[in-house]
Amino acid sequence: MLKYKSIEELVAEAEKTGQKISTLVLADQAEQMELSEEEIYSRMEESFDVMCEAVRRGQDKNQRSTSGLTGGEGYKMMHYSQETGGGLSGSFMTMAMSRALAVAGYNASMGRIVATPTAGSCGIMPGCLVSLYEDKKIPKREIIMSMFTAAAFGMVIADRACIAGAQGGCQAECGSASGMVAASMVELSGGTPRQCADACAIAIANQLGLVCDPVAGLVEIPCIKRNVSGVMIAFSAADMALSGILSEIPVDECIDSMGEVGRSLPSALRETALGGLAITPTGIKLKEMVFGKES
């Protein structure tokens, strides 16, 4: 059985057996949950289907958040991508941005999403994987399998550090999501288990210290746009790892560092809405618009 205490353990096991990390994780999870591999796979497939549906619904022109603070970002980016032939970053990346915005926005309008690993970072994995599925035509089965690698990496992160903004800031939510999906994308692109680990390390290192400072305490500003940053960082980390660039700091040490940085963040910067963007004059004004002056 796998312990999910270190990513090194997963990489070593994959190298020893010559199997993909996702294959090992699916078999292990079936054993631990006393279900068949097919049942576990189907449950993961259901999550991917929910992500695809959330992209579609969130790209609606009339999408608005429950609070009224945000809305329509996924549509705007999609429209811009189509009108300009891909804007500055190219069609593939601008559409990935649109998908991340769509899912994070759909979450803010009380839509159905998959917490990956949390609701605040729910747009990052769909932004990446739905794009590979729809625009790069990677078969669905491969995409779903790669989610087991992402989930296993997430389990290690949750164990060694944390995945909640209230504990570790945004780096624990968006940073973890980027690291997880970067590993997925390396595996999908034929990279080695070691490269999966490097991609995760680079993605986490590049979001180290990111604070959780939601305006009015709502999962909207700056969360929705940070999902886009998470997507861009995941793609760049995966590409760096696939090109042979190494993470000088091993992934488990990056994760430990993220945990340590999270613990040293003041509580004002950990989802309490008492610091950062939340207490800028405009942040406070927006809060009063939603909740009134009293609170």
């Binding site: 576990i40 993961m44 917490a115 609701a119 989930a151 389990m155 709502l218 999962v219």
Partner: peptide
């Protein structure tokens, strides 16, 4: 903990603690 604690739950947003 299992894989569905990390990729999941499937939920209605916006917040796992304030909504789900």
């Amino acid at each position: 903990m299992n894989v569905f604690d990390i990729i999941g739950p499937i939920m209605i947003g916006p917040s796992s603690s304030h909504t789900a």
